[in-house]
Amino acid sequence: MRVKVKRWHGVAVWRWDVPNEEVCGICRVPFDGCCPTCKTPGDDCSLIWGECTHVFHMHCLLRWLQTEGSRGQCPMDRRTWGINFTKLFFLL
């Protein structure tokens, strides 16, 4: 017998390349979900990686940085926030 596969339509889920089951440190929503102001995950609500290796929903972090109390620091370790450009590069 010969089996000829004409077309294989599979189903896959996508995940952000972050450790499993992690949630955004700001909104506590899983990274694969979206920040509280967004409705669609993925392209419309991407992540941002900091120099300090912390990851957040980009919208969450930008909103955090706009608040006065943030003083431009990472909310997790209070180091000055800097974007990890090697990771951001791919996003652009």
Partner: peptide, 30 residues
């Protein structure tokens, strides 16, 4: 497919749900 996906959508990866989907096959028997 996953590699291609990672180029199209950087920093993301795929996990296949193998039991889902549909396959068109042709069986050539004697």
């Amino acid at each position: 497919y996953d590699e291609g996906f990672q180029i199209f959508k950087p920093r993301r990866k795929l996990q296949w749900l193998k039991s889902l989907g549909k396959v068109q096959i042709e069986l050539e028997l004697q």
